[in-house]
Simulated assay, not measured.
Amino acid sequence: MDSNKFSPEEIAAVYKVIRERRDMRHFLSTPLEEGQLQRFIQAAHSAPSVGLMQPWRFIRITDPQLRIAMHKHVDEERIATADALGERSSEFMRLKVEGILSCAEVLVVGLTDHREKYIFGRRTMPEMDLASASCAIQNMWLAARAEGIGLGWVSLFDPEAIRHLCQMPEGSQAIAILCLGHVKDFYPAPMLEIEEWDKRKAISEIFYENSWDANEAGTKPIL
């Protein structure tokens, strides 16, 4: 018996929340319960980070006019993205890409300024600050899903525009707008799969052994 191992029920719960996490776009306006947002922030702040740099910063948006301004900017970027997609433009415009005005809570996630002083683990890969913050967002996502709360990650924005709107310091970077709130139902599958935008790849297409092109060269798939 491995004393480090969780119980079968706990293990099943971990895999269930990973499997049923969804990037949500449709929300109810019902407020979160007392203490929920704080628990989600704590879950995010418990994430690992390269060199323990903890580069994440969370800004709770409570000003309705600021929400409206952010929504307007995201909608402008949505149109610009559609233009850049060419032949898939009309298909993209049918997708719902955010829930900023309808969700209970909006958070802006940013990378802190003065990140260049953190060298541990970043000397050759400075982007590990973004990887670390992504781990924090995933922690929040899973905690929210476990409590029946939807979360949507909005990335259709100009980081500098959001930085200015939220009065973030020079050198910091906005990386996500998070929409949090109750939902009527969680999507049975990722929304972009349901809308046939794309589909999840098979494990054999993303898992290789020893070299990148092992499967493509005809090697028997690992899984």
Rank of each mutant, 00 (worst) to 15 (best):
H182D: 05
L101T: 08
P188Q: 05
A161T: 14
H45D: 06
S7T: 15
R25D: 01
C135K: 02
A47W: 09
Q65D: 15
I41P: 00
G218D: 10
L151R: 02
R88K: 13
A189D: 13
T81Q: 10
S90Q: 15
V108A: 11
C166R: 02
V97Q: 11
V17H: 02
A217L: 14
E127H: 13
W153G: 01
P55E: 03
A133Q: 07
L165P: 00
Y118R: 05
I11L: 00
K72Q: 14
G152E: 08
L165M: 15
A82I: 06
W212Q: 08
P8G: 02
E98C: 13
N139D: 09
I11E: 05
N210A: 11
I162V: 15
W197I: 13
R200I: 12
I79S: 04
D213P: 07
R57E: 09
I59Y: 13
T124S: 10
G171Q: 10
E116Q: 14
P48W: 04
I149L: 10
E33H: 11
H164N: 12
D113Q: 14
Q54I: 03
H164V: 14
K184Q: 15
T81A: 11
W197N: 01
A84H: 05
G121S: 05
M191T: 06
G110S: 15
K184Y: 04
L111Q: 07
R22E: 03
M70T: 04
R25T: 00
S29D: 14
C166G: 01
G99K: 06
A84M: 12
A13R: 10
P31F: 10
G181C: 01
E9S: 11
L66P: 02
A80V: 00
D83H: 12
A136E: 03
R145M: 02
Q36T: 12
S134F: 08
T81C: 10
G150R: 05
V154C: 14
R88G: 02
A69Q: 14
L32M: 09
P8Y: 03
I100P: 03
S204I: 07
F92N: 06
G121A: 05
D63V: 08
W153E: 03
Q36P: 01
L107I: 15
V97G: 03
P31K: 07
M140Q: 04
L142Y: 08
A104F: 09
D113Y: 06
D75H: 11
N139T: 06
L130M: 13
F207V: 15
A44I: 08
D83R: 13
L52G: 01
R200A: 13
A176Y: 10
S102P: 01
E91P: 00
Q54T: 04
M53W: 04
R39Y: 07
L223K: 09
R21L: 01
G148K: 09
R123E: 14
T219K: 15
G171T: 12
I18G: 00
R88S: 11
A144N: 03
